[in-house]
Nucleic acid binder design. Structure first.
Ligand SMILES: [Mn+2]
Ligand SMILES: [Mn+2]
Ligand SMILES: [Mn+2]
Ligand SMILES: [Mn+2]
Lengths: 221, 221
DNA sequence: AAAAATATTTAGACTAACCTAAATCAAGGC
DNA sequence: GCCTTGATTTAGGTTAGTCTAAATATTTTT
Protein backbone atom coordinates (compact mmCIF):
# COMPACT_ATOMS: atom_id res chain seq x y z
CA UNK A 1 0.00 0.00 0.00
CA UNK A 2 1.04 3.55 -0.81
CA UNK A 3 1.52 5.86 2.16
CA UNK A 4 2.38 9.50 1.46
CA UNK A 5 4.79 11.65 3.44
CA UNK A 6 1.82 13.65 4.69
CA UNK A 7 0.09 10.53 5.95
CA UNK A 8 3.32 9.45 7.64
CA UNK A 9 3.52 12.77 9.42
CA UNK A 10 0.00 12.35 10.76
CA UNK A 11 0.81 8.84 11.98
CA UNK A 12 3.96 10.12 13.67
CA UNK A 13 1.99 12.95 15.29
CA UNK A 14 -0.64 10.56 16.65
CA UNK A 15 2.15 8.38 18.01
CA UNK A 16 3.87 11.31 19.70
CA UNK A 17 0.67 12.56 21.30
CA UNK A 18 -0.24 9.06 22.43
CA UNK A 19 3.17 8.81 24.14
CA UNK A 20 2.57 12.17 25.83
CA UNK A 21 -0.57 10.97 27.49
CA UNK A 22 -2.49 7.72 27.33
CA UNK A 23 -5.87 7.32 25.67
CA UNK A 24 -7.42 8.57 22.47
CA UNK A 25 -5.95 11.57 20.69
CA UNK A 26 -8.38 14.37 19.89
CA UNK A 27 -8.80 16.14 16.57
CA UNK A 28 -7.96 19.46 18.18
CA UNK A 29 -4.74 18.21 19.68
CA UNK A 30 -3.61 16.94 16.30
CA UNK A 31 -4.67 20.20 14.75
CA UNK A 32 -2.50 22.09 17.23
CA UNK A 33 0.46 19.77 16.80
CA UNK A 34 0.45 19.72 13.00
CA UNK A 35 -0.60 23.34 12.53
CA UNK A 36 -3.47 22.28 10.30
CA UNK A 37 -7.10 23.21 10.74
CA UNK A 38 -9.34 20.77 12.59
CA UNK A 39 -11.42 20.27 9.44
CA UNK A 40 -8.35 19.15 7.51
CA UNK A 41 -7.46 16.76 10.31
CA UNK A 42 -10.92 15.18 10.23
CA UNK A 43 -10.50 14.72 6.50
CA UNK A 44 -7.20 12.92 6.91
CA UNK A 45 -8.43 10.80 9.81
CA UNK A 46 -11.07 9.36 7.51
CA UNK A 47 -8.41 8.39 4.99
CA UNK A 48 -6.07 6.89 7.61
CA UNK A 49 -9.00 4.94 8.98
CA UNK A 50 -9.80 3.71 5.47
CA UNK A 51 -6.22 2.41 5.29
CA UNK A 52 -6.58 0.67 8.66
CA UNK A 53 -3.75 2.68 10.18
CA UNK A 54 -5.88 4.09 12.99
CA UNK A 55 -9.00 3.35 14.99
CA UNK A 56 -11.36 6.24 14.44
CA UNK A 57 -14.88 6.88 15.55
CA UNK A 58 -16.59 10.20 14.97
CA UNK A 59 -16.27 12.55 17.93
CA UNK A 60 -14.41 9.89 19.91
CA UNK A 61 -10.82 10.65 19.02
CA UNK A 62 -8.29 8.40 17.46
CA UNK A 63 -5.63 5.79 18.29
CA UNK A 64 -3.08 3.85 16.24
CA UNK A 65 -3.92 0.36 15.02
CA UNK A 66 -1.23 -2.32 15.29
CA UNK A 67 -0.31 -1.55 11.70
CA UNK A 68 -0.20 2.20 12.35
CA UNK A 69 1.91 1.65 15.43
CA UNK A 70 4.46 -0.39 13.50
CA UNK A 71 4.62 2.32 10.86
CA UNK A 72 5.05 5.06 13.46
CA UNK A 73 7.85 3.25 15.24
CA UNK A 74 9.64 2.67 11.95
CA UNK A 75 9.48 6.35 11.05
CA UNK A 76 10.79 7.31 14.48
CA UNK A 77 13.56 4.73 14.03
CA UNK A 78 14.57 6.26 10.71
CA UNK A 79 14.38 9.80 12.05
CA UNK A 80 16.64 9.03 14.99
CA UNK A 81 19.13 6.95 13.02
CA UNK A 82 19.53 9.78 10.53
CA UNK A 83 20.05 12.21 13.40
CA UNK A 84 22.87 10.02 14.68
CA UNK A 85 24.36 9.93 11.20
CA UNK A 86 24.22 13.69 10.86
CA UNK A 87 25.78 14.23 14.25
CA UNK A 88 28.39 11.47 14.37
CA UNK A 89 29.46 11.27 10.74
CA UNK A 90 28.80 14.72 9.31
CA UNK A 91 29.46 16.59 12.57
CA UNK A 92 26.32 18.64 12.62
CA UNK A 93 25.46 20.20 15.95
CA UNK A 94 22.61 18.63 17.89
CA UNK A 95 20.32 21.56 17.28
CA UNK A 96 20.75 21.27 13.50
CA UNK A 97 19.91 17.62 12.95
CA UNK A 98 16.18 17.53 13.56
CA UNK A 99 14.98 19.54 10.56
CA UNK A 100 17.05 17.52 8.11
CA UNK A 101 16.00 14.22 9.70
CA UNK A 102 12.42 15.40 9.28
CA UNK A 103 12.98 15.01 5.53
CA UNK A 104 15.20 11.93 5.62
CA UNK A 105 12.74 9.93 7.74
CA UNK A 106 10.48 9.55 4.69
CA UNK A 107 13.03 7.85 2.43
CA UNK A 108 11.66 4.43 1.53
CA UNK A 109 14.13 1.56 1.66
CA UNK A 110 14.25 -1.18 4.26
CA UNK A 111 17.74 -2.07 3.14
CA UNK A 112 18.96 1.50 3.56
CA UNK A 113 17.75 1.70 7.15
CA UNK A 114 19.25 -1.61 8.05
CA UNK A 115 22.63 -0.74 6.54
CA UNK A 116 22.62 2.69 8.11
CA UNK A 117 21.91 1.10 11.49
CA UNK A 118 24.86 -1.25 11.07
CA UNK A 119 27.13 1.52 9.77
CA UNK A 120 26.40 3.59 12.88
CA UNK A 121 27.09 0.63 15.17
CA UNK A 122 23.47 -0.06 16.17
CA UNK A 123 23.11 3.05 18.33
CA UNK A 124 20.58 2.88 21.16
CA UNK A 125 20.01 6.63 21.55
CA UNK A 126 19.87 9.64 19.27
CA UNK A 127 21.72 12.95 19.87
CA UNK A 128 18.97 14.17 22.20
CA UNK A 129 19.01 10.98 24.25
CA UNK A 130 15.81 9.63 22.72
CA UNK A 131 15.80 5.85 22.39
CA UNK A 132 16.11 4.34 18.89
CA UNK A 133 13.76 1.42 18.17
CA UNK A 134 15.57 -1.63 16.80
CA UNK A 135 14.45 -3.44 13.66
CA UNK A 136 11.69 -5.17 15.62
CA UNK A 137 10.44 -1.91 17.07
CA UNK A 138 11.82 -2.51 20.55
CA UNK A 139 13.54 0.30 22.37
CA UNK A 140 15.42 0.83 25.58
CA UNK A 141 13.23 2.25 28.33
CA UNK A 142 15.21 4.91 30.03
CA UNK A 143 14.22 5.65 33.55
CA UNK A 144 15.42 9.21 33.56
CA UNK A 145 13.57 11.87 35.54
CA UNK A 146 13.44 15.62 35.06
CA UNK A 147 16.07 17.63 36.92
CA UNK A 148 13.30 19.79 38.31
CA UNK A 149 11.83 16.70 40.00
CA UNK A 150 15.01 15.35 41.54
CA UNK A 151 14.34 14.79 45.23
CA UNK A 152 17.77 13.65 46.39
CA UNK A 153 21.01 15.53 46.04
CA UNK A 154 23.80 13.53 44.50
CA UNK A 155 25.44 12.51 41.26
CA UNK A 156 23.45 12.20 38.06
CA UNK A 157 24.08 11.62 34.38
CA UNK A 158 22.37 13.83 31.80
CA UNK A 159 20.39 11.29 29.79
CA UNK A 160 17.92 13.11 27.59
CA UNK A 161 16.32 16.41 26.65
CA UNK A 162 12.61 16.72 25.98
CA UNK A 163 12.69 20.11 24.27
CA UNK A 164 14.35 19.89 20.83
CA UNK A 165 14.02 23.55 19.91
CA UNK A 166 17.04 25.53 18.77
CA UNK A 167 16.84 28.14 21.53
CA UNK A 168 16.72 25.53 24.26
CA UNK A 169 19.50 23.38 22.82
CA UNK A 170 21.69 26.41 22.24
CA UNK A 171 21.08 27.63 25.75
CA UNK A 172 22.14 24.46 27.49
CA UNK A 173 25.06 23.99 25.11
CA UNK A 174 26.29 27.42 26.13
CA UNK A 175 26.00 26.43 29.75
CA UNK A 176 28.40 23.64 28.82
CA UNK A 177 25.95 20.78 29.33
CA UNK A 178 25.48 17.84 27.00
CA UNK A 179 24.11 14.29 26.92
CA UNK A 180 26.26 11.92 28.98
CA UNK A 181 27.73 14.59 31.26
CA UNK A 182 27.99 13.78 34.95
CA UNK A 183 26.71 16.45 37.29
CA UNK A 184 26.14 16.81 41.00
CA UNK A 185 22.74 18.16 41.96
CA UNK A 186 23.41 20.43 44.92
CA UNK A 187 19.92 21.74 45.42
CA UNK A 188 16.44 21.62 43.98
CA UNK A 189 14.48 24.50 45.40
CA UNK A 190 11.31 23.33 47.08
CA UNK A 191 9.47 26.54 46.26
CA UNK A 192 10.12 27.11 42.52
CA UNK A 193 11.90 23.90 41.46
CA UNK A 194 14.89 25.79 40.17
CA UNK A 195 18.13 23.94 40.74
CA UNK A 196 21.84 24.26 41.27
CA UNK A 197 24.32 21.91 39.64
CA UNK A 198 28.02 21.35 39.79
CA UNK A 199 29.63 20.04 36.61
CA UNK A 200 32.57 17.63 36.41
CA UNK A 201 34.92 20.54 35.71
CA UNK A 202 33.82 22.38 38.81
CA UNK A 203 31.46 24.93 37.33
CA UNK A 204 28.31 25.86 39.18
CA UNK A 205 25.14 26.22 37.11
CA UNK A 206 21.71 27.53 38.00
CA UNK A 207 18.67 26.34 36.08
CA UNK A 208 15.10 27.57 36.10
CA UNK A 209 12.25 25.16 36.62
CA UNK A 210 11.41 25.56 32.93
CA UNK A 211 14.87 24.40 31.85
CA UNK A 212 15.01 21.72 34.54
CA UNK A 213 11.80 20.17 33.31
CA UNK A 214 13.33 19.51 29.90
CA UNK A 215 16.55 17.90 31.08
CA UNK A 216 16.22 14.28 32.14
CA UNK A 217 18.84 12.66 34.35
CA UNK A 218 19.68 9.21 35.70
CA UNK A 219 21.02 8.65 39.17
CA UNK A 220 24.61 7.39 39.51
CA UNK A 221 25.30 5.02 42.36
CA UNK B 1 10.73 30.04 -3.94
CA UNK B 2 9.10 26.68 -3.36
CA UNK B 3 10.01 23.96 -5.84
CA UNK B 4 8.33 20.58 -5.48
CA UNK B 5 9.95 17.19 -6.02
CA UNK B 6 7.83 16.79 -9.14
CA UNK B 7 9.05 20.08 -10.56
CA UNK B 8 12.62 19.08 -9.77
CA UNK B 9 12.14 15.85 -11.68
CA UNK B 10 10.93 17.76 -14.72
CA UNK B 11 13.93 20.10 -14.54
CA UNK B 12 16.26 17.12 -14.26
CA UNK B 13 14.58 15.47 -17.23
CA UNK B 14 14.92 18.58 -19.39
CA UNK B 15 18.57 18.76 -18.39
CA UNK B 16 19.18 15.12 -19.28
CA UNK B 17 17.50 15.44 -22.67
CA UNK B 18 19.35 18.65 -23.41
CA UNK B 19 22.63 16.81 -22.71
CA UNK B 20 21.56 13.99 -25.03
CA UNK B 21 21.19 16.34 -27.95
CA UNK B 22 21.51 20.09 -28.32
CA UNK B 23 18.61 22.44 -28.93
CA UNK B 24 15.09 22.73 -27.58
CA UNK B 25 13.48 19.75 -25.87
CA UNK B 26 10.07 18.75 -27.22
CA UNK B 27 6.93 18.07 -25.21
CA UNK B 28 6.75 14.56 -26.62
CA UNK B 29 10.31 13.72 -25.67
CA UNK B 30 9.63 14.79 -22.10
CA UNK B 31 6.41 12.84 -22.14
CA UNK B 32 8.30 9.73 -23.19
CA UNK B 33 11.07 10.22 -20.67
CA UNK B 34 8.83 10.94 -17.68
CA UNK B 35 6.09 8.49 -18.65
CA UNK B 36 3.49 11.23 -18.35
CA UNK B 37 0.98 12.24 -21.02
CA UNK B 38 1.90 15.12 -23.30
CA UNK B 39 -1.02 17.15 -21.96
CA UNK B 40 0.33 16.83 -18.43
CA UNK B 41 3.75 17.92 -19.62
CA UNK B 42 2.31 21.05 -21.25
CA UNK B 43 0.60 21.81 -17.94
CA UNK B 44 3.83 21.60 -16.03
CA UNK B 45 5.83 23.52 -18.62
CA UNK B 46 3.53 26.48 -18.07
CA UNK B 47 4.18 26.36 -14.35
CA UNK B 48 7.96 26.00 -14.74
CA UNK B 49 7.91 28.91 -17.15
CA UNK B 50 5.94 30.96 -14.63
CA UNK B 51 8.73 30.26 -12.14
CA UNK B 52 11.38 31.33 -14.67
CA UNK B 53 13.07 27.94 -14.60
CA UNK B 54 12.69 27.35 -18.33
CA UNK B 55 12.29 29.23 -21.60
CA UNK B 56 9.03 28.10 -23.11
CA UNK B 57 7.18 29.20 -26.18
CA UNK B 58 4.08 27.35 -27.36
CA UNK B 59 4.84 24.72 -29.98
CA UNK B 60 8.53 25.67 -29.92
CA UNK B 61 9.86 23.31 -27.28
CA UNK B 62 11.66 24.19 -24.10
CA UNK B 63 15.12 24.89 -22.69
CA UNK B 64 16.49 25.57 -19.20
CA UNK B 65 16.98 29.14 -18.05
CA UNK B 66 20.18 30.00 -16.18
CA UNK B 67 18.24 29.48 -12.97
CA UNK B 68 16.83 26.15 -14.15
CA UNK B 69 20.27 25.02 -15.21
CA UNK B 70 21.73 25.77 -11.80
CA UNK B 71 18.93 23.87 -10.17
CA UNK B 72 19.37 20.86 -12.47
CA UNK B 73 23.10 20.67 -11.87
CA UNK B 74 22.56 20.84 -8.14
CA UNK B 75 20.07 17.96 -8.22
CA UNK B 76 22.47 15.88 -10.31
CA UNK B 77 25.23 16.74 -7.85
CA UNK B 78 23.14 15.54 -4.93
CA UNK B 79 22.04 12.40 -6.75
CA UNK B 80 25.59 11.39 -7.57
CA UNK B 81 27.04 12.24 -4.16
CA UNK B 82 24.38 10.10 -2.50
CA UNK B 83 25.19 7.28 -4.89
CA UNK B 84 28.83 7.47 -3.81
CA UNK B 85 27.74 7.43 -0.17
CA UNK B 86 25.55 4.38 -0.69
CA UNK B 87 28.30 2.52 -2.51
CA UNK B 88 31.39 3.53 -0.54
CA UNK B 89 30.01 3.83 2.96
CA UNK B 90 27.01 1.52 3.06
CA UNK B 91 28.42 -1.01 0.57
CA UNK B 92 25.43 -1.17 -1.73
CA UNK B 93 26.08 -2.66 -5.13
CA UNK B 94 26.26 -0.24 -8.05
CA UNK B 95 22.99 -1.47 -9.48
CA UNK B 96 21.15 -0.75 -6.22
CA UNK B 97 22.12 2.86 -5.62
CA UNK B 98 20.18 4.70 -8.29
CA UNK B 99 16.64 4.15 -7.01
CA UNK B 100 17.49 5.25 -3.50
CA UNK B 101 19.44 8.28 -4.77
CA UNK B 102 16.35 9.17 -6.77
CA UNK B 103 14.67 9.88 -3.44
CA UNK B 104 17.65 11.36 -1.62
CA UNK B 105 18.38 13.90 -4.37
CA UNK B 106 15.34 15.91 -3.25
CA UNK B 107 16.44 16.46 0.35
CA UNK B 108 16.77 20.22 0.87
CA UNK B 109 19.85 21.39 2.74
CA UNK B 110 22.84 23.19 1.30
CA UNK B 111 24.81 22.39 4.40
CA UNK B 112 24.04 18.68 4.15
CA UNK B 113 25.31 18.46 0.58
CA UNK B 114 28.45 20.33 1.39
CA UNK B 115 29.24 18.18 4.42
CA UNK B 116 28.45 14.99 2.55
CA UNK B 117 30.81 16.08 -0.22
CA UNK B 118 33.58 16.66 2.29
CA UNK B 119 32.84 13.39 4.13
CA UNK B 120 33.20 11.47 0.89
CA UNK B 121 36.48 13.21 0.05
CA UNK B 122 35.15 15.42 -2.75
CA UNK B 123 34.64 12.59 -5.23
CA UNK B 124 34.80 13.51 -8.92
CA UNK B 125 32.80 10.55 -10.25
CA UNK B 126 29.86 8.48 -9.11
CA UNK B 127 29.73 4.66 -9.09
CA UNK B 128 28.80 4.58 -12.78
CA UNK B 129 31.63 6.89 -13.77
CA UNK B 130 29.37 9.91 -14.22
CA UNK B 131 31.06 13.18 -13.27
CA UNK B 132 29.94 14.93 -10.06
CA UNK B 133 29.48 18.70 -10.34
CA UNK B 134 31.33 20.63 -7.62
CA UNK B 135 29.65 23.29 -5.48
CA UNK B 136 29.97 25.79 -8.34
CA UNK B 137 28.40 23.40 -10.81
CA UNK B 138 31.64 22.58 -12.62
CA UNK B 139 32.38 19.02 -13.54
CA UNK B 140 35.20 17.05 -15.03
CA UNK B 141 34.74 16.46 -18.75
CA UNK B 142 35.70 12.93 -19.41
CA UNK B 143 36.84 12.16 -22.88
CA UNK B 144 35.84 8.53 -22.81
CA UNK B 145 34.56 6.84 -25.96
CA UNK B 146 32.33 3.81 -26.37
CA UNK B 147 34.11 0.47 -26.61
CA UNK B 148 32.15 -0.24 -29.77
CA UNK B 149 33.77 2.82 -31.36
CA UNK B 150 37.37 2.11 -30.40
CA UNK B 151 39.45 2.24 -33.56
CA UNK B 152 42.84 1.30 -32.20
CA UNK B 153 43.74 -1.87 -30.36
CA UNK B 154 45.54 -1.29 -27.09
CA UNK B 155 45.13 -0.65 -23.39
CA UNK B 156 42.12 1.18 -22.05
CA UNK B 157 40.58 2.02 -18.71
CA UNK B 158 36.86 1.46 -18.15
CA UNK B 159 35.65 4.94 -17.30
CA UNK B 160 31.88 5.03 -17.42
CA UNK B 161 28.69 3.20 -18.25
CA UNK B 162 25.80 4.90 -20.00
CA UNK B 163 23.14 2.31 -19.26
CA UNK B 164 22.23 2.27 -15.54
CA UNK B 165 19.67 -0.51 -15.70
CA UNK B 166 19.89 -3.48 -13.36
CA UNK B 167 20.14 -6.09 -16.13
CA UNK B 168 23.00 -4.31 -17.85
CA UNK B 169 24.95 -3.61 -14.67
CA UNK B 170 24.48 -7.18 -13.46
CA UNK B 171 25.59 -8.53 -16.80
CA UNK B 172 28.87 -6.69 -16.93
CA UNK B 173 29.50 -7.31 -13.23
CA UNK B 174 29.20 -11.03 -13.92
CA UNK B 175 31.67 -10.69 -16.74
CA UNK B 176 34.00 -9.35 -14.06
CA UNK B 177 34.17 -5.80 -15.37
CA UNK B 178 33.94 -2.65 -13.30
CA UNK B 179 34.79 1.06 -13.40
CA UNK B 180 38.55 1.64 -13.27
CA UNK B 181 39.53 -1.77 -14.66
CA UNK B 182 42.31 -1.87 -17.21
CA UNK B 183 41.58 -3.91 -20.30
CA UNK B 184 43.29 -4.62 -23.57
CA UNK B 185 41.07 -4.22 -26.61
CA UNK B 186 42.16 -7.01 -28.93
CA UNK B 187 39.62 -6.49 -31.66
CA UNK B 188 36.63 -4.38 -32.60
CA UNK B 189 34.83 -6.09 -35.42
CA UNK B 190 34.44 -3.80 -38.43
CA UNK B 191 31.19 -5.47 -39.49
CA UNK B 192 29.07 -5.59 -36.29
CA UNK B 193 31.16 -3.56 -33.82
CA UNK B 194 31.30 -6.45 -31.37
CA UNK B 195 34.58 -6.60 -29.51
CA UNK B 196 37.06 -8.83 -27.77
CA UNK B 197 38.81 -7.78 -24.57
CA UNK B 198 41.48 -9.18 -22.36
CA UNK B 199 41.23 -8.29 -18.68
CA UNK B 200 44.14 -7.68 -16.30
CA UNK B 201 43.75 -11.18 -14.88
CA UNK B 202 44.02 -12.76 -18.30
CA UNK B 203 40.38 -13.50 -19.06
CA UNK B 204 39.07 -13.03 -22.55
CA UNK B 205 35.66 -11.37 -22.91
CA UNK B 206 33.40 -10.96 -25.93
CA UNK B 207 30.94 -8.08 -26.01
CA UNK B 208 28.10 -7.34 -28.41
CA UNK B 209 27.81 -3.96 -30.06
CA UNK B 210 24.87 -3.23 -27.78
CA UNK B 211 26.95 -3.78 -24.66
CA UNK B 212 29.99 -2.06 -26.17
CA UNK B 213 27.99 1.09 -26.84
CA UNK B 214 27.23 1.48 -23.16
CA UNK B 215 30.76 1.04 -21.83
CA UNK B 216 32.98 4.07 -22.18
CA UNK B 217 36.76 3.75 -22.02
CA UNK B 218 39.79 6.01 -21.93
CA UNK B 219 43.00 5.23 -23.71
CA UNK B 220 46.08 4.44 -21.59
CA UNK B 221 49.43 5.59 -22.81
C1' DA C 1 -32.18 20.16 32.54
C1' DA C 2 -31.53 23.93 29.73
C1' DA C 3 -28.19 27.18 28.00
C1' DA C 4 -23.65 28.37 26.76
C1' DA C 5 -19.29 27.19 25.32
C1' DT C 6 -16.28 24.23 22.97
C1' DA C 7 -15.04 20.45 19.91
C1' DT C 8 -15.83 18.19 15.81
C1' DT C 9 -17.67 17.27 11.43
C1' DT C 10 -19.76 18.63 6.97
C1' DA C 11 -20.13 21.52 2.88
C1' DG C 12 -18.03 23.79 -0.54
C1' DA C 13 -13.89 25.69 -2.61
C1' DC C 14 -8.95 25.85 -4.03
C1' DT C 15 -4.23 24.18 -5.96
C1' DA C 16 -0.90 20.72 -7.73
C1' DA C 17 -0.43 17.09 -10.61
C1' DC C 18 -2.19 13.95 -13.12
C1' DC C 19 -5.70 11.97 -16.89
C1' DT C 20 -8.77 11.53 -21.60
C1' DA C 21 -10.86 13.55 -25.46
C1' DA C 22 -11.15 17.24 -28.54
C1' DA C 23 -9.27 21.17 -30.89
C1' DT C 24 -5.52 23.40 -33.08
C1' DC C 25 -1.02 24.03 -35.03
C1' DA C 26 3.05 22.85 -38.02
C1' DA C 27 5.39 20.18 -41.50
C1' DG C 28 6.08 17.47 -45.39
C1' DG C 29 3.99 15.46 -49.63
C1' DC C 30 1.70 16.34 -53.71
C1' DG D 1 -0.80 26.18 -52.16
C1' DC D 2 -3.70 22.56 -50.05
C1' DC D 3 -4.02 18.27 -47.36
C1' DT D 4 -2.86 14.85 -44.38
C1' DT D 5 -0.52 13.56 -40.36
C1' DG D 6 1.67 13.90 -36.14
C1' DA D 7 2.76 17.04 -32.36
C1' DT D 8 0.99 20.06 -29.14
C1' DT D 9 -2.27 22.55 -26.61
C1' DT D 10 -6.89 23.29 -24.60
C1' DA D 11 -10.99 21.78 -22.17
C1' DG D 12 -12.85 19.41 -18.70
C1' DG D 13 -12.43 15.95 -15.03
C1' DT D 14 -10.08 13.41 -10.79
C1' DT D 15 -7.59 12.85 -6.33
C1' DA D 16 -4.80 14.42 -2.28
C1' DG D 17 -4.46 17.76 0.86
C1' DT D 18 -5.43 21.96 2.36
C1' DC D 19 -8.72 26.02 3.67
C1' DT D 20 -13.16 28.84 5.56
C1' DA D 21 -17.77 28.99 7.04
C1' DA D 22 -21.64 26.63 8.64
C1' DA D 23 -23.84 22.85 10.96
C1' DT D 24 -23.97 19.61 14.58
C1' DA D 25 -22.37 17.03 18.62
C1' DT D 26 -20.45 17.03 23.22
C1' DT D 27 -19.20 19.03 27.50
C1' DT D 28 -19.49 22.43 30.97
C1' DT D 29 -21.85 25.83 33.47
C1' DT D 30 -25.63 27.67 35.65
MN1 LIG E 1 14.29 14.92 16.02
MN1 LIG F 1 8.29 14.22 8.78
MN1 LIG G 1 21.76 7.40 -10.86
MN1 LIG H 1 14.06 12.34 -8.62
Amino acid sequence: MQISDTEENYIKAIFALQMQEQGEVSTNRLSGHLLNRAASVTDMLKRLSEKKLIHYEKYKGVSLSAKGYRLAVNIVRKHRLWEVFLKEKLHFKWDEVHDIAEQLEHIQSEELVSRLDKYLGYPKFDPHGDPIPDKDGLMQKNQAIALARVDRKGNYRIARVTDHSRPFLNYITELGLKIGDLVRVEEVNAYDASCKLKTADGQTIFLSQKAGTNILVEQRR
